[in-house]
């Protein structure tokens, strides 16, 4: 464990806490893409198949459980919570995300570390995570100015993967056998997708006003 990865995991956790706060403090999920949340739940379920078979550390297992439970509870809130589900922008959240799932799965069948169920699903989860934010970015763009908590959620989510890139650089130079090309390349693509969002976010923060 290095500081970059720990910082990445913490910013990832913060992004989920910010989202849960927004949803439960305002009893509203306006501006949040349910599709992105469902993709994240799928990412965690596909990636943590080894939850019960590989014990790496208490921290690792605890965080996996937290990510799975929190992502499923966000999907539950947006779909079934009597008050919250009414504020879901159903008519704006129209990204055809099944294409993202299909594309990631096909890519995982082609490019993976080993052709086993666990490894193919791991690669699938890595590719899917890279593009899972697209419905959310699409929704932010369509809903005009973003309310700042939704923007902060996306900001922390982007920061988490950026920290991971530093983690991979650090591990590459400190552990000669470290080859994590699938996660590295996919993580770079994922962070690049946030680039334009970061640009508008910093402009808004720098000059005040709202991002539109």
């Amino acid at each position: 464990m290095n500081i970059f990865r720990f910082a990445g995991d913490m910013t990832h956790l913060i992004s989920i806490i910010v989202l849960l706060l927004k949803i439960y403090a305002t009893k509203s999920c306006s501006g949040i893409s349910l599709k992105t949340q469902e993709l994240y739940a799928l990412v965690f379920l596909a990636r943590y198949l080894d939850l019960f078979t590989d014990f790496i550390s208490v921290y690792n297992t605890m965080m996996k459980v937290v990510f799975i439970v929190s992502s499923l509870s966000i999907v539950w809130s947006m779909r079934l919570h009597p008050v919250i589900k009414r504020s879901y922008d159903k008519e704006l959240d129209t990204f055809r995300y099944y294409l993202l799932v299909l594309g990631s799965f096909v890519l995982a069948l082609l490019i993976h570390e080993k052709f086993t169920v666990q490894e193919v699903f791991w690669a699938f989860s890595i590719y899917l995570e890279a593009v899972a934010i697209l419905p959310q970015l699409f929704l932010l763009q369509r809903s005009g100015n973003v309310d700042n908590l939704a923007a902060q959620y996306v900001f922390f989510l982007g920061a988490y993967r950026a920290f991971y890139i530093f983690n991979w650089i650090y591990r590459y130079f400190t552990k000669p056998y470290f080859t994590r090309w699938i996660a590295c390349v996919s993580g770079l693509v994922q962070t690049a997708l946030y680039a334009d969002f970061f640009y508008y976010y910093f402009i808004r923060v720098a000059i005040g006003g709202t991002v539109s």
């Binding site: 690792n60 080993k114 791991w122 996660a183």
Partner: peptide, 10 residues
């Protein structure tokens, strides 16, 4: 690292 490339990252 061991031959089996287990995933220690989240």
């Amino acid at each position: 690292s061991s031959s089996v490339q287990y995933h220690d990252e989240l």
